[in-house]
Design a protein around this nucleic acid. Structure first.
Length: 447
RNA sequence: GGAGGAAUGGCAGAGCGGUCGAAUGCGGCGGUCUUGAAAACCGUUGACCCUUCGCGGGGUCCGGGGGUUCGAAUCCCUCUUCCUCCGCCA
């Protein structure tokens, strides 16, 4: 793969940026032609584009005129160089020397223009990289999760003969998850699963993977560490710098989700239209620093630094991405239904939507002892935001090169599923395993 | 970790410092021929940027970055990756 930015270790992201060929997120042509719509929609994401967008367009204007100047200068100096060549061949050394001098002067000029151009580009990229993806028209306005719109709910009354225990108590009661041991060996947020707890995890992973295979996904096992180019490609950098664990000595990052390696498989590729759609699934452990997001509400499995997740990733034709998003939504709903958990689907409001996403559905299962809804999946359409960053394109019927749309979703994240399964299915005689999982666990009950 | 070698278009593979975006073969696409197909023959076949209503014109790119030169795929430095041999090793 002919792509190598060699950023070196450390975190000087904008230095890294400046070594790239045009790095953009939203396409400039799109910004140019839709600046009013864009500004309006970004406001839904609580992003103020009033100042930045005109500034971007101004820089873009300057970039183009400087480019033109440079190209003209290069044109001239190319012609002169050729002239020198043929003059020498004809033996007219004196004339050649004269032309050579003119060429040297031109060279100086183009060097300056080139520097100017690079400065403009760097400045432009710095700005572009701070503009989030434009939300889809259906995204509701709002500040935080309280403003998300419920699009579906499948509730169920869960009754207990005794007072139900939260999963952290069940975990120690049945000795299936050991948080203290994790703290001793690594730190908070890195639990050990043991005995039937470990087997339940393994069962869920296999169940999720088998379901995905049956649905036509191709399975991948991925590297758990990625380089900066990959972290940038899917949008973890620079927006979420600090949320990933990194290995400065090698300029690598521990993946926060397998979305990163799985989507970056296609970085800098031009696919054939017939290759689409691509539908991949991968299981991996995920690592998140979760800096500053701890509190009493994140006890037990609710928030971890390391957790397991099965992820589905779609690469779609732009015209097919929204139907595909609905398919993914239905697929994930089917998984939760098979595990017999009450759940609801939320359409994220502008304030809760991630930087890179145009439209996201969150899935929440109800955890009966905590009496809380727990987010277990997030299914998003990034449209061409990620593909533009990573130059992931396809050739359409007319031979035109266009950006694909990328989508992904958790199917599913394990810890909160485990929390809900434990809490909802507890009885005085133990925790019952849902029917579909039994052939994977090899037992019907944790007791 | 030590010693060597290599990196060119979808693939394979040429390329005295000047007219090389790059020979040639394969593949792909279009056409001729054929009842149809194959074979054969002819043509065509990279990405990106700027400019133009369009035709077209210009620029950049031969692993990445930098340098020498009027001029670099060709020379120099550096990084990365791959291959061979040795060592180590799940």
């Amino acid at each position: 793969m002919a792509y190598n930015s060699n950023p070196g270790p450390g975190r000087d992201f904008f230095l890294f940026l400046s070594s790239q060929i045009p790095v953009i997120m939203l396409q400039l042509a799109f910004i140019r032609e839709n600046k009013d719509l864009l500004t309006k929609r970004l406001a839904i994401k609580n992003f103020d584009g009033q100042k930045i967008i005109p500034r971007v367009l101004d820089l873009d204007e300057r970039r183009r005129s400087t480019q033109k100047e440079l190209d003209d200068a290069l044109f001239e100096s190319n012609a002169l160089s050729k002239e020198v060549g043929s003059l020498f061949k004809e033996g007219k050394a004196e004339e050649a020397t004269k032309v050579r001098e003119r060429s040297a002067a031109l060279k100086k000029k183009s060097r300056e223009l080139n520097e100017k151009l690079n400065k403009i580009k760097t400045e432009l990229d710095k700005l572009l990289v701070t503009i989030p993806n434009m939300p889809h028209a259906s995204v509701p306005a709002g500040k935080n999760e309280g403003d998300n719109a419920m699009v579906f709910e499948e509730a169920r009354e869960i009754t207990f003969s005794v007072k139900p225990l939260p999963h952290w108590d069940l975990a120690s009661k049945y000795r299936i998850i050991d948080f203290d041991l994790g703290s001793k060996v690594t730190g908070a947020g890195f639990p050990f699963y043991r005995g039937k707890g470990a087997r339940l995890q393994r069962a869920l992973i296999n169940f999720f993977l088998d379901e995905a295979l049956n649905a036509g996904y191709e399975e991948y096992q991925v590297p758990l560490l990625v380089n900066q180019d990959s972290a940038f490609g899917t949008g973890q950098l620079p927006d979420k710098d600090g949320q990933m664990y990194d290995i400065p000595a090698d300029a690598l990052y521990l993946i926060p989700t397998s979305e990163v390696p799985v989507t970056n498989i296609y970085r800098n590729d031009i696919l054939k239209e017939g290759d689409l759609p691509i539908r991949n699934v991968a299981f991996s452990s995920c690592f998140r620093r979760e800096a500053g997001s701890w509190g009493s509400h994140v006890r037990g499995l609710n928030r971890l630094h390391q957790f397991d997740k099965v992820e589905i990733v779609h690469i779609e034709h732009p015209e097919r991405s929204y139907p595909a998003l609905e398919d993914m939504k239905d697929y994930v709903a089917g998984l939760i239904r098979k595990l017999e958990l009450p759940f609801r689907i939320m359409r994220l409001c502008g304030g809760d939507l991630s930087f890179t996403s145009a439209l996201t559905y969150d899935f929440e299962v109800y955890s009966a002892a905590q009496e809380r809804w727990l987010e277990v999946s997030s299914v998003s359409n990034f449209e061409s935001f990620q593909s533009n960053r990573m130059k992931l394109r396809f050739k359409d019927k007319n031979g035109k090169t266009r950006l694909v749309h990328t989508l992904n979703g958790s199917a599913l994240a394990l810890p909160r599923m485990v929390a809900a399964l434990l809490e909802n299915n507890q009885t005085s005689g133990g925790v019952n395993i849902p029917e579909v999982l039994r052939k994977y666990t090899g037992f019907d009950r944790i007791s």
